[in-house]
Nucleic acid binder design. Structure first.
Lengths: 124, 124, 124, 124
DNA sequence: GTGGTCTAGACCACT
DNA sequence: GTGGTCTAGACCACA
């Protein structure tokens, strides 16, 4: 590996979406806390070796969803009271929408969800 | 009914892929058994209110994967010995690729595997 | 006037916003009716002498607001049941948000709203 | 209070413009009378939690329009004979430019002027 | 320094 | 044909 940053874009998802997801994750796990500044468009563009417009698009989505705020001339900041509500929202979405689909798939494959859940991690 | 549009295509997946998945599912659960004829391109196109080319694309993929066979002048037929091997292949793929991703997501959301186990159906 | 189309962009609003507003207006007054196709990105770009991306941006916003729908490979279409609800939404917004501001301004200027309203049109 | 941010800046207008409008209003309604001193750049910057340069920009505009005067070493003062002429100018501008737009909008929304008359305050 | 807008041109997948 | 994505580069207002 010669270059230390920015490889690994999946090609089934637009890059801007992947960046958005990554930032959203960083907000959820509080890598960026409420009120923190998000790296600038240009900085991220350099780091990720991506066109600034692509970063901009990701930011725009996050603003539309209320996760970050623009302070004019200063940059983007994590909005207040986001981490918790975001986590809650994602959890609900997972349980209501994604999990049933996964269960369907497990059933169709004739697999046992018990066994599957006992594999891998050991949280609870 | 004024609108002669489709029903419920997801817009994050190409329609041909969704059709392919649907057909593949029908073969796996033996709605179409080995040797059975698959509805014609034209018929499916009418039923699903989709461009025939789109159906063709789905068929082509299934042929390439050896799930169905073209018999000239007769149409498409489910290939022999497919259901089982297909199931095995899908299972392996699921366990190796999809399941780890799902586990990651569950952990990131801080969800309890136990609770998830008690949700949805009551298979094992 | 040598060129027959596309002049008059206001410079206090992004072009994409002006295009969005224009299209929204055309949907509200049913120039484009439910289910109608919207001119293509490229066509509009030519007509308005604007970059296709700029049109795209306007379309994206309209999709996000549910005013138009994308049919893959076919183009953009006016969503069902939009004209009425859109008008209602706009009316409510005007009365609740814009009108009070206008009244405030009229008061501050010491003008009479009665007289103002009797000027100009004669609907009711 | 952890957040040392601003209050309620609209984000469709530059902050300096909003400050200018606010000061202009205060002069028009004689909160600041002719010859009165305007709070200093630094003071306003502190009060409004805004960069001093932003205040300066607002002041500059007001000076350019002759509403306030700089007295070297003393600060900014409301210019003489301003309140009335300012009001007159604003009125004219409103009737000639803004009001026709508002009427257009009311018509487009199909709203009844009579109803609007009966909304809000009860001046004439 | 910040983000926003626009352009011209390329490439892609879908129908 | 359709829209979507990405790039490189320019210009702008704001703070």
């Amino acid at each position: 590996m010669t270059r230390g940053v920015s490889f690994d874009w999946r090609d089934d998802l637009p890059i801007w979406k992947q960046i958005k997801d990554r930032l959203q994750g960083a907000i959820m796990d509080e890598t960026y806390k409420e009120g923190d500044a998000i790296p600038s468009v240009r900085q991220l563009a350099l780091d990720l070796k991506v066109n600034p417009l692509t970063i901009s698009r990701a930011f725009q989505e996050l603003v539309d969803e209320g996760l970050i705020e623009k302070r004019r001339g200063l940059g983007m900041f994590v909005a207040p009271n986001v981490a918790q509500s975001l986590l809650a929202r994602e959890r609900e979405n997972f349980i209501k929408n994604e999990w049933p689909e996964i269960l369907k798939r497990i059933d169709a494959l004739g697999l046992s969800k018990k066994e599957l859940l006992n594999t891998g991690g050991n949280n609870d």
